[in-house]
């Protein structure tokens, strides 16, 4: 029985590890400037903890194999050196690993969340609601209109709660259901939610940030590749959560300008 256990643990471990090593299922291609640091961090962690995983399971298998020896003359053996070396090894090795991960990882985190957005960022306003995202561009005047929750009306397409009757800046705001951005230009999003908590997740951008009702949260990134990607909601927001999504279209600068013009005309 013990030998069977040892074999089972080792087989399970090797199968599990092989899919990680082969990258059968893996992160999608990275399209942001801050993504590579995160990928690097993840791969370092994968290597380090993968080795720990492998070592832990294999040692367990080995020890159980040995412990299943039925020879009646065999005496039990204590672990050489007792507990103290193990405790010391765990504190030192894991401690070093932790400090390294924290030190390196804080940089990757900081680039996304602590560094301020570039001054020349393209500012886009995002409204999340059950169960869609809407995006707002300032329009030709470069000014966003104010937000008035009491003016929100999905039926007339006023998802943000603009008040064009009294607010001139709001009149030319462009509101669309897809996020269209130029490539290689810093983007600054202001996230706010109309109703409950939502989240803005673009796997390719390595960006995930919750929307919190009542506060406005900035998110900045720069996309490095053109293409069409999905923005999905990752914070449980109600029955349509699974279907809450929008498309991110990264365009060349001229294409973007043209698109924006066509929207402003409407």
């Amino acid at each position: 029985m013990g030998k069977l256990f040892a074999v089972a643990v080792i087989v399970i471990t090797l199968i599990s590890v092989s899919f990680f090593v082969m990258h059968t299922w893996w992160m999608p291609v990275d399209i942001s400037t801050t993504g590579p640091a995160i990928d690097h961090q993840l791969e370092e962690t994968m290597t380090g903890s993968g080795l720990l995983f492998l070592a832990g399971q294999l040692v367990l298998g080995l020890f159980v194999w040995q412990a299943s020896n039925k020879n009646p003359a065999r005496k039990i053996k204590m672990f050489p050196g007792g507990a103290s070396p193990l405790v010391a090894a765990a504190i030192i090795l894991v401690g070093i690993e932790i400090l390294t991960l924290t030190f390196v990882g804080t940089k990757a985190w900081g680039a996304v969340n602590l560094a301020p957005a570039a001054a020349d960022s393209l500012h886009i306003d995002v409204q999340a609601e059950q169960f869609a995202f809407y995006f707002r561009y300032a329009g030709p005047d470069g000014q966003f209109g104010g937000l008035h929750p009491d003016k929100i009306d999905d039926g007339s397409g006023n998802y943000f709660g603009l008040d064009p009757a009294n607010d001139v800046a709001a009149r030319d705001d462009v509101v669309v259901g897809s996020l269209v951005i130029p490539v290689n230009r810093p983007i600054l999003l202001s996230l706010h939610s109309k109703d409950v908590g939502h989240s803005f997740y673009v796997p390719e951008l390595r960006i995930q940030q919750d929307f919190v009702p009542g506060i406005e949260i900035p998110v900045h990134f720069t996309a490095t590749q053109t293409g069409k990607f999905e923005i999905v909601c990752t914070q449980l927001c109600g029955l349509g959560h699974y279907n809450m999504k929008a498309y991110l279209q990264v365009m060349s600068e001229p294409d973007y300008e043209q698109w924006l013009k066509s929207q402003e005309g409407q």
Partner: peptide, 28 residues
């Protein structure tokens, strides 16, 4: 009257493809 706004249905492709040109809001 207020302009009727085109509706972006891209999040629901099975619906979006049923409309050759985007439908608009219908409140006015």
């Amino acid at each position: 009257p207020m302009k009727m706004k085109p509706i972006d249905m891209s999040k629901e492709p099975s619906c979006a493809k049923q409309h050759a040109t985007p439908i608009t809001t219908e409140n006015v």
